[in-house]
Computed example of a mutant assay.
Amino acid sequence: MKILIIQQKMIGDVLTSSILFEALRLKYPKGQLDYLINEHTVAVVENNPNIDNFLLFTKEAELSKAKLLKLARSVGNRKYDIVVDVYSKLSSNLISLFSGAKTRISYHKYYTSLFYHYNIKREKNNNGKAGLAIVNRMQLLGPLGIETTFIKPKIYLTEEEISTSKHFLENHQIDFSKSLYMISVLGSGGKKTYPFSYMAEVIDTLVKETSGQILFNYIPKQETEAKTIFDLCKPETQKNIYFHVFGKSLREFLAITYHCDALIGNEGGAINMAKALNIKTFAIYSPWIDKATWNLFENDNNVSVHLKDFKPELYTKPEKKFKNEAAELYKKFKPQLFTNKLKAFLK
């Protein structure tokens, strides 16, 4: 049995969809399970024992119809029995069709019956704690006789990565007898980034409550923005921030985060990765993001806050409809609204 899962897009999506491989491996222990993903997301699923091969959706394929067609034909040459398309956009529709697989599964859209044998309607309400992102992905395996279950995404670090990152932190004067926190100071874009001055207040509260050591999650090109948040923190807080201690690659970030007591900050890929490492998380949602979809496995160790939790009267339409109003809504999402919840989490 040869099975291909397609999940283009961002790191968080790729990590979350990796749960399908654990379920498929139980059903098909000797099957070939392959994953088609964007090339920049491989690090988050590297070393996953349930994935046999990676097929990469390159920038060239994204920009060139000819390259996309070449990729689709190469998938067809692999003779997959089953294709599960989690991405379900035009490029993956084409790849699925060219695969020639006898069983093709994706989400329901008005036109998807042209490409897939099974078109699964997404759940819109979730009464459990797994999050709709988990629930809807697991539904895609229903046609294969795999019952819906709640599998947590997992990240697989090597012992060498864990050891190397610990030495790196020790060499930068991190004291493992004290608490250590990773801060997701920046979101994936301006509309998913908590206002800088508000984030500084959150970090001030964190240090005041715990006297903990603080690391910032950012990449070199974001240093100016991260430094702005650092400068907005109180002087006594700045003393606890190890600003220049960060991972220069995604795997390095993951290995460093493994040693932290919690990851706190903007909801997004970093939060999902921390959960997959079994690190406690406190997520601050953008006002236009649907919390019901991405509050994966919410419990005392994984806490999240959303403006809608505190000011539901503002939401006269679905969250996504407020995307262009994110800046104005963020102004209303003051840290004081959730300070007590943050303190309870820290305790």
Rank of each mutant, 00 (worst) to 15 (best):
L114Q: 05
N301D: 06
S188C: 11
S113E: 01
M10T: 00
K332G: 07
I219H: 03
T257S: 14
K152S: 13
Q8D: 02
S91R: 15
E60M: 05
S197Y: 14
N302C: 09
K89L: 10
D204W: 09
N301C: 07
L307Y: 09
E39C: 09
R104I: 12
K70D: 10
E160N: 11
A23T: 03
T339G: 01
K152V: 11
G189E: 04
I271Q: 14
A72T: 02
A43D: 15
K280C: 04
A276L: 03
D300R: 13
I3F: 03
N125C: 09
L186A: 09
L140R: 04
E223Y: 13
K221C: 10
F115M: 08
Q222T: 07
R122S: 08
S74I: 01
W294P: 00
S211E: 12
Y156N: 10
I279P: 01
N240W: 00
T316K: 14
Y118A: 06
I155E: 07
L342M: 13
L180S: 04
L56W: 08
N266P: 06
L186V: 13
P235D: 11
V202L: 10
K320S: 02
E170G: 05
E298P: 03
I284G: 01
E160A: 10
V303Y: 09
F54H: 14
N171H: 11
N217S: 14
L33D: 01
K227E: 07
A344W: 02
K334V: 15
Y111L: 07
S179H: 12
T193M: 10
F345T: 01
H244F: 08
K70Q: 12
G131I: 12
L140K: 03
E60F: 05
F168S: 02
T148N: 13
I5F: 01
R122G: 03
I19Q: 02
Q8V: 14
V75R: 00
I146V: 15
G131W: 08
L132S: 08
S304H: 06
L329I: 06
V45G: 00
N53Y: 08
Q139E: 11
I241H: 03
V305E: 07
S188I: 11
T228R: 15
S249A: 12
K234Y: 10
H244G: 06
S249I: 13
E62N: 15
N299Y: 08
F57Q: 00
V14M: 08
E325M: 09
S163R: 13
G268F: 02
K317M: 09
A130N: 06
D231H: 14
H167S: 06
I214M: 11
N295Q: 15
N324I: 00
M199E: 02
H117E: 03
